[in-house]
């Protein structure tokens, strides 16, 4: 029961905070396994490639179908290469709904939630890890209780709040509850707990106040934790569906996730158009992932592990 007391993740942040110079090279040396050392384990490759086909096929199929016409998409036997190539599906997505605006909405809500959480959770997490104030334990306990409760428990009253504020069908309604996160605070607290505090004390002796210590000394050191929080919040915000679904009914205020549910309603089985829409909604995050793979994989795993 006392894991929270001693910083639970000393090795984590110690290792994470150190600039990871060693990178890829070392992974192979520490990667070791079950199967003996042959030149290349072809059987393993075969199984993995079979798995990759299952993982990637839906994306390939989505891409190909988005360039087919309706007849091509419903052809029996299956049509692999679009015949003819039909580029009108993407245009139809924009005709069916304000897709560009939805894209902007998704972008805005993702940026706003992420910026808010990074600033607020980092500050609160730092305070719980390093400051002493009356009621700290009780307040932290309340934060943890939010973490443990399923999100559906908040939805009805959150909706009432938005209704009474007159915020329904605004981007504010989607964004604001997502600015605050018990999970993010907990994540950052664990991170700060695991950092050595000699630097802070040195800064204090030099006359820095709490804010300066936090801003100039601790924040730069907390970068790995902040990256993890950012990745987690970006993914969650971009993909989030239930809450935006509840508070928006005007298409111009919807994010892409809810927009897609509308597209399904409009084009029930017009799969080429549906694939074009879902492809457009997916691509931005996939592109970001391709560029920031390392951060994504580490961040997801790291933040997931504290959930």
């Amino acid at each position: 029961m006392s894991e929270l007391a001693s910083p639970p993740v000393p090795a984590v942040a110690a290792a994470a905070a150190a600039p990871s110079a060693g990178g890829r090279g070392q992974r192979t040396t520490s990667g070791r396994e079950v199967s003996a050392r042959r030149r290349q384990p072809w059987a393993v490759h075969a199984v993995l490639i079979l798995g990759v086909v299952a993982m990637v096929f839906p994306f390939v199929w989505q891409l190909l179908t988005s360039f087919k016409n309706f007849a091509g998409a419903t052809a029996i036997p299956v049509q692999w290469i679009p015949q003819p190539w039909d580029f009108s599906n993407f245009g139809k997505v924009f005709e069916a709904m304000p897709f560009g605006q939805m894209f902007v909405n998704s972008l805005l809500l993702t940026v706003a939630r992420t910026a808010g959480q990074v600033v607020l959770c980092t500050m609160a997490g730092y305070a719980f890890a390093r400051m002493h104030f009356p009621g700290r334990n009780v307040i932290f306990l309340l934060f943890l209780s939010v973490l443990m409760v399923p999100g559906q428990l908040f939805l009805l009253p959150q909706y009432e709040i938005m209704q009474s504020l007159g915020w329904l069908d605004t981007l504010k309604a989607i964004i604001v509850p997502g600015l605050f996160s018990a999970f993010g605070t907990f994540l950052m607290r664990q991170f700060f707990m695991s950092m050595p505090n000699e630097l802070e004390e040195a800064a204090r002796l030099d006359g820095a106040n709490q804010w300066q210590v936090f801003w100039r000394v601790m924040l730069p050191l907390a970068k790995p934790g902040i990256i993890a929080l950012t990745v987690f919040t970006v993914l969650w915000s971009w993909n989030d569906m239930l809450w935006p679904l509840i508070v928006t009914s005007d298409q111009a205020k919807m994010p892409l996730s809810v927009g897609l549910t509308q597209l399904v309603g409009l084009h029930m089985t017009n799969y080429p158009v549906l694939m074009a829409g879902s492809l457009l909604a997916t691509i931005p995050m996939v592109v970001v992932f391709m560029f920031l793979q390392r951060q994504f994989i580490q961040g997801i795993a790291f933040s997931g592990s504290k959930g």
């Binding site: 990759v52 990637v56 993909n239 897609l260 909604a281 995050m285």
Partner: peptide, 16 residues
């Protein structure tokens, strides 16, 4: 490649 679906929007996954 195995991680790809993790970054994909569930609504889009569902449609495909």
């Amino acid at each position: 490649l195995y991680f790809l679906p993790v970054v994909t929007m569930p609504a889009a996954v569902a449609i495909v």
